[in-house]
Simulated assay, not measured.
Amino acid sequence: MSLTLLFKSLLQRKVITILLLIQLMLTLALVSNSILLSQQAYTLSNQPTGLQLETTLAIELKPTDENLIVHPALGELIQRQLAELRKINGVRYAAFTNQTPLMFGGMNGDVFVPDHAETSSVDAVPYNYAEAGLFDALQMTLLHGRWLSAEDKNTDNVVLTEKLANRLFGQSHLALGQQISAGTVVGVVADMMYQRFASDQYYGLFFNRDLSRADYGYRLILQVESQAVAAVRQQINQSLRQVEPEIDIQHIVSLRQLHRDVFEQERGLAILLSVLSALMLLVAMISAYSHALFHGVQQQNEIGIKRALGASKRRILLEVLSESWLTTGIGVTLGLLASFLLQQQLATVISLPALPLWLPFAGALMLLFCVTAATWYPAAIATRVSPATATKAL
């Protein structure tokens, strides 16, 4: 069928055609970006964390008594709480820290090698004040050197994660004994996912230091036997209240829950766009069906005459589908541009990779298939118009 005739047919119904094109354009943009977001959410959620998510519990606390917020009373309170928590059946290890892994942000600082400050400087590295027991509580893996011991208490000895050590010294084992802005490196541990929006989510630096104050609270980390997680959670509140009633227990969560929370924005937006895409795709199919059915009814006489002049049912079917394909082709061409524009806007709100070219093209093929499926029945009805129908109407 001639493209000129197809365009003329579409121009006869300008308003309906324009609305259908806009709908197809927006549908493709939403479908492409919802798939991209779903891939992004899946990729982020399945990154290795280096942590025991199911069996590690994090407790966030803050003393309500002003006298307990500052050192040394704060340190004594923490040690009494840890001693009580270790008595709970199923608790393997317990330790304190100023911040837990798998957070959006927290206490950060700059890190650099003094002799190469300009080339080695790293912004926003999580500073973790902890104790020797944190190594076992988080089930860390020691790669080089040693972990912090009781003798390192309140010294400048530090331990780095492997990725941070590689960033500062090229190879992680070269970090041992080196001086950095935060202190002397005595060990390197395997990477853990610490902060989502640090310079790198696998960067981490550990001190064995007391907390001088706890104006914003502190965290206790428990490593629990897998079969005892639920039972331990039920006893934590009571155990801590027995030690000190003047305490605000703000959260008791597993690292699995923190992991879900830290990527919740991407998952939520992916689900929202997926639902909108499905609805838009359904509406596009309904619109294509209605458009083809209405056009078929309007063109009954013309179709009947074509049949009387020898046009086959296959030709009539192809003509109706060709108009649908042309409309869809124009709509998806506009939709390709809209897909990239929408991705750019989303990237200003959340971390989102560039839209690969194949994705909107795959979405365009899916949209073309859905529109064809929706148009098929009205097109089949149009082929049933007999020459006698046109003859009687003339």
Score class of each variant (00 low, 15 high):
residue 130 A to Y: 02
residue 348 T to N: 13
residue 295 H to I: 00
residue 303 I to F: 14
residue 253 V to P: 05
residue 3 L to Y: 15
residue 56 T to C: 10
residue 37 L to V: 11
residue 179 Q to P: 09
residue 83 A to D: 15
residue 300 Q to S: 13
residue 65 D to W: 08
residue 280 M to Y: 09
residue 335 G to A: 11
residue 227 Q to C: 05
residue 224 V to R: 00
residue 90 G to W: 02
residue 231 A to N: 13
residue 370 C to T: 04
residue 275 V to M: 08
residue 27 T to P: 00
residue 279 L to D: 11
residue 364 A to G: 10
residue 153 K to N: 02
residue 174 L to W: 09
residue 250 Q to N: 11
residue 226 S to N: 11
residue 333 T to K: 02
residue 225 E to K: 09
residue 168 L to M: 12
residue 287 S to P: 03
residue 220 L to Y: 02
residue 384 R to A: 15
residue 195 Q to S: 14
residue 192 M to Q: 14
residue 132 A to N: 09
residue 290 S to L: 15
residue 128 N to D: 07
residue 337 L to H: 06
residue 158 V to E: 00
residue 373 A to M: 13
residue 331 G to P: 06
residue 252 I to F: 01
residue 84 E to W: 08
residue 281 L to C: 12
residue 381 I to H: 06
residue 300 Q to N: 08
residue 56 T to G: 01
residue 361 F to V: 11
residue 140 M to N: 13
residue 160 L to D: 04
residue 193 M to I: 05
residue 135 F to I: 06
residue 194 Y to A: 02
residue 22 I to A: 15
residue 90 G to F: 03
residue 20 L to Y: 07
residue 378 P to L: 03
residue 215 D to L: 03
residue 168 L to T: 04
residue 158 V to L: 01
residue 277 S to K: 00
residue 6 L to D: 12
residue 307 R to V: 11
residue 84 E to K: 12
residue 208 N to W: 06
residue 228 A to W: 01
residue 273 L to R: 05
residue 203 Y to C: 03
residue 134 L to W: 04
residue 44 L to N: 12
residue 50 G to S: 07
residue 266 E to P: 02
residue 296 G to T: 07
residue 94 A to S: 13
residue 322 S to P: 00
